[in-house]
Structure formats: C-alpha cells, structure tokens
Design a protein around this nucleic acid. Structure first.
Length: 570
RNA sequence: CGGAGCGUAGCUCAGCUUGGUAGAGCGCCAGCUUUGGGAGCUGGAUGCCGCAGGUUCAAAUCCUGUCGCUCCGACCA
C-alpha cells in the first residue's frame, strides 16, 4: 500500500480523552477513530491486524476441533425469554441493546450467543451419536456497557470469538474444556503475550468452573494473585488466601463497651485500644436486593463482595446508606457490630473472624466499641465462610508459598456452563437406554479487538507501537527518502514492486516528506521491519527492526530473506 | 444509575471571573530556502465558540434547558 493513498493520518498529539498508552497510540498512529462513546472505526491498519488475530484464533480453534459458523447479531426476544435471561439483560442490567422492528416486535443485538447456538444445536441433536459438537464464530458483539473506556479495551461494539461445546456428560465437557484451554494457551503464545491463565469467578453466565486468560499490564482492570512457589493463580475476586493464625489467650475476659470517640476505622481503633489489628473486626452492612446483610471480616481484611453475592445469589449488593445503618444499628456509621442487630438480619462472617479469643467489634452505639468479645458467650455463631478479599502476601491456598499480585487485561474467558441453557431450552438427546438428557455445555470467549489493544499495551516504547510480526498490519515499512529525485524514486518503486512480488506485505512511504517525519510515523505505526532507501544507500537498503535501535545496510536479497524469516513466509 | 468535569479552527488549548462581536501552537495551502530524526522565512485559508431558549443596546462570556463526550464506582471479551 502506498502511504500517499493510505487512510489514517498520524497525529503528533494524542486526543485528550485517550487515557491509556494503547488508546493514545492507536489514535495517533491512525488505527482507530472514535465515532461515539465506546464505538470505534477500525481504520485500515487496525483491520489488517484484527484479521491476523482472527486468523490465528481461527486456526487454533479449528485444530482444537471447533467448526466455524456465523450466527446473526440481530436476535429475537423469544429465545432470551426461553433461557430466562431477557429480564436480566434488558430491564435489570441493561447490557443488551433492544428495540422494536417496524412490526412492533422486540429484537435485540446479541451481546453473547448461548441462546442462538443452543437453538441451533437442539435442532441438530437427537441422539447421543450426535454429540460432542463444538462451534465457534468471530463476530461483532454489542454490549451497552455502563462505562465504556480505554478505547478498544471496553467498547460497546467489539469483535469477539465465541465458541460453544456440547457434550454428553461432565466427562465429555472436561475433554472439550481442556481442548479449548490448550488452544487459548497456543493463541497467547503465538501472539507472544506475557500472560497468565487464572481461576475466575463465573459470574452471571453461571456454571461450575472458569478460567480467565490475563495479559499482564499495569493498566489492566483486574488484579490477579499468583503463588511464588507453585502454579496457583487466580483473579483476586475469586482467590482464597491463607492467613496466619495468631496464638490466642486462654482466659476469656469479661466483655465491656469502651468509649472511643470518633474512632472510625480499625487501624486507629487498634492503636487506641492497644490491641493488635487482627483482634478488631469490621462489620459492614449491605443491602442485598431488598434484604439487609451484615458481613464480618477481621480488622486487617476487606470484604470480597463477589463472594458475598455468590453466597446470597442476589442481583445487587451495595453498602447500605448511612440513614439505613443508623435506623438499623442505632449508631452512626463506623460502630456497627454483630451484637444486638435485628433478628432478621443475616450475619455472614469470614472464617478468620472465628478462632479468636477476646476480640473487638462495634457496639452498635455511637463512639462505643465492644472488647473481649467471644463467640458462644456474648453472641451466637454467625454463618462462617470465605468472604474475605485475598491480597498480596497472603499464604497460597495450595502450598506454603506466598501470593504475589499483578494487574491483568482479561482477553479470554472459558467456562464450564453445564446444563443451564440446554435444560432451559430443551437441547436434549436420547442416550443408549432411550432416556432424554440435556447436553452439557461449555462456552469460550476471546476478545479480538481487546487482544489488539492489550498487545499495544504490552508492546510499545516512547515513540510508538512495536507490533509482533505475527499480527502486525504489514510485514515491512518501506521508506523512500529524497523521493523527488527521479532515479531514487524509481529505485524505491522497483523495490516496492519486488517486495510485493515476494508476497511481503509492505507499506510504502512514497510521500515527499522530510526524513524525520517519515521515521517518526514509522516508529509510531510500529511495523516490525523498516527498509529505507535514499541517496546514501546506493544499490543496497537500510534494514532496521522496530524493536531494535540499530540499523544496517544489506543487499535487497538479504533484506527479503530476513523479512521472510521473521514473518514466517516461504 | 450515583459522583466529578469538559464541549471554542483538523489536533492540543487560551479567552469566560469583570459581556463590547475570535486567538495561540501544531497541522493545512502557496512560494523560496532546507533535505537521514517532525527545519526556516514570507504570505494565506479555516470557526453557527455543541444545540435551543432567556437576560441585555450588546453574549464564547451571565441564566435555564438540552445533547454529546470524558473521568471515579458496579458490569465484562
């Protein structure tokens, strides 16, 4: 492609709404343009990269035994009512774009395709001989995100590969899931990501197990915890950390309420009372849908709201507003405790709240704190469970190692769905005994546009993008300097033709600009190989890798050979 | 949806407090010089100051409404 005819001008300054490096570089490099909130134009350079990412994904899915199809993005309401997700996705979460067609029928743009794919497979599946099946598609998805952000990272319209497996039973699902898991690892490896597969919370999609594929980046929206000694790795919202248990006193002292005026927060309280932080207790009052729930964690810990939601099965969970806390506990915010709460309030306590002798908790009276509290004597046993947010330096739940923390971008998520959708939508088969059984499903998503953004986030320097050759928009960037000199122009044109004949994808900068501008644009765009011809290069060519600061003169033949080797061309 | 902020030239932004009819840098166009890391000089074009009302002799500026965008939270590939 001639750059003089290329659409997508580079910009020297980033638009002010670009918050992350990847977003800014993609806008500046002429990869994307914003049309409205969370809606982006994929300019020619980006489209080439997206196609290459898609091709890698396609190849690996095919090798893993999945068959490609393409489902409609425009879907009808009926299927979503069959799976009982219509209400949740429209009225409750509002994540789905839904509107009426000219006849007044309600239609929607697919945020995901469990319904449609289950509908397809139930027509195709009659006998146990029809399974297993696995299909995938690469398609534009629509999600009315509450807060789109960071350019392609969280957009309202984006490209996703989604695959769905249908098996006879759990054992079959395990096999399908494992094949997808391996394929996801190969995809990440082929793109050259620094990444980790982590245990994840399945969230609203449901199911028995899931893993996220996280590209490591400081700007990632997720925190992941991993063990420094074994292979344990999990999303922070899923992880269970191990805490040190402290030796306890043997004597149960009498409980008393201590005046500690204005002491909000366990740290200042522990200091004031002269007790270790772990003896204090945080009691948080939540509104779970329309019920009130109290959650206790040790004073040195925080509540993991995802775990609480999973325990309660509620739709929404948020901290109760101050007025509600006041009427409930009779105290200002900051003095809530488990003793004396109304009987209908469910009290959940993290397991590490237990096994403490003479601990502290709020007294439900402004400025007062109960000390020397003991379960069984001063209050009944609450429901214990794991409700604490794991964090860095916790003990590993699998071994004696310690957890480390890092940020990640979730580019893929694989789920064991089970029979949630097949049961609701009657995707059944007859087994060898003639008994009807629901297919056991898995679903596997990977964000194609998000991979592009994550890749830029992980591969750039102060000058611009540094694409790995596998997904770069072009293999080579041919820079012609002094192009107003006819003989040099002809030389550059000849080289351009030669490269094209060699099936090398080349962007040819034929613009009559100064060297600085052309090199600056090349660095910004990030094409892996830069070839320069000028009056200095004679019948040779300057060969430079984007990731490498040094350049050298080589013959054209040698340059072609190197490019083909780097890009895996024959 | 709750909280915060921003809409002025293609991009980044100044001007608004204290109303007087539009500015800078970069980019763009022309010419000359320059020519391997975003060069210099000269000349030039570009704005429904987001939109709609209101106040006023007069509104980019004050008021009201509205639309759009961004950031912080819950959602997710």
């Amino acid at each position: 492609m001639r750059q003089s005819r290329h659409i997508g001008k580079t910009m020297r300054e980033a638009p002010k709404d670009a918050q992350t490096v990847a977003h800014a570089l993609m806008v500046r490099g002429g990869y994307i343009q914003q049309l409205s909130a969370g809606i982006y134009i994929y300019l020619p350079l980006l489209l080439r990269t997206l196609n290459k990412i898609s091709q890698i994904v396609r190849e690996e899915m095919t090798i893993a035994g999945s068959e490609e199809l393409l489902m409609p993005a425009l879907q009808s309401r009926e299927l979503w009512e069959e799976s009982a997700r219509w209400e949740r996705y429209t009225a409750i979460d509002g994540i789905m774009f839904a509107f009426k067609d000219r006849r007044g029928a309600t239609v929607c743009l697919g945020p995901t395709h469990e319904e449609v794919v289950t509908d397809i497979l139930r027509r195709d599946t009659k006998s146990y001989k029809d399974l297993p099946k696995n299909v995938f598609q690469i398609q534009t998805k629509f999600r009315d995100e509450i807060r789109p952000r960071f350019g392609l990272m969280r957009a309202r319209e984006f490209i996703m590969k989604d695959a769905y497996s249908f098996d006879l039973d759990e054992a079959g699902l395990d096999v399908s899931y494992e094949a997808m898991r391996k394929a996801y690892h190969r995809i990440c490896e082929r793109i050259g990501f620094q990444y980790r597969a982590v245990a994840a919370d399945p969230g609203a999609i449901g199911g028995s197990g899931s893993q996220e594929f996280m590209v490591l980046a400081d700007t990632g929206e997720d925190t992941i915890l991993f063990c420094d000694a074994c292979d344990f790795a999990a999303n922070q919202e899923k992880a269970a950390g191990r805490l040190e248990e402290y030796p306890q006193e043997t004597e149960h002292k009498p409980m008393e309420a201590v005046l500690g005026e204005g002491l909000i927060g366990t740290e200042s309280l522990a200091k004031f009372l002269g007790i270790p932080l772990w003896k204090t207790t945080k009691t948080l009052i939540f509104e779970a849908d329309d019920k009130i729930v109290a959650v206790m964690v040790r004073g040195d810990c925080d509540v993991n709201e995802v775990k609480v939601v999973n325990r309660l099965g509620c739709k929404s969970l948020k901290l109760a507003p101050p007025e509600r806390i006041k009427t409930l506990t009779g105290a200002e915010v900051g003095y809530a405790g488990p003793i004396g709460l109304p009987a209908d309030v469910l009290i959940l306590a993290d397991q590490y709240v237990n096994n403490r002798v003479n601990f502290e908790c709020g007294a439900n009276q402004t400025n007062y704190h109960n000390v020397n509290v003991n379960f069984g004597r001063d209050l009944g046993l609450p429901e214990f469970g794991d409700y604490r947010l794991a964090k860095e330096n916790d003990g590993c739940p699998q071994c004696s190692g310690k957890l480390k923390s890092t940020r990640g971008i979730e580019i893929g998520h694989i789920f064991k769905l089970g029979t949630k959708y097949s049961q609701a939508m009657k995707c059944n088969y007859l087994d060898a005994e003639g008994k009807s059984k629901p297919a056991v499903m898995g679903c596997y998503g990977i964000g194609v546009t998000r991979i592009a953004a994550a890749c830029v986030e992980q591969n750039h320097d102060e000058k611009g993008i540094i694409w790995p050759a596998q997904i770069a928009p072009y293999h080579a960037h041919l820079i012609a300097l002094n192009i107003e000199e006819e003989n040099l122009r002809q030389q550059a044109e000849a080289l351009y033709t030669r490269l094209q004949n060699e099936r090398i994808e080349v962007l040819y900068d034929d613009r009559p600009l100064r060297a600085g501008e052309k090199f600056g644009d090349a660095d910004l765009m990030g094409i892996p190989v830069r070839l320069t011809v000028s009056k200095r290069t004679g019948d040779q060519v300057e060969f430079k890798l984007r990731k490498d600061p040094k350049s050298e003169l080589t013959s054209v033949d040698e340059a072609v050979r190197r490019i083909k080797e780097l890009c895996g061309l024959k």
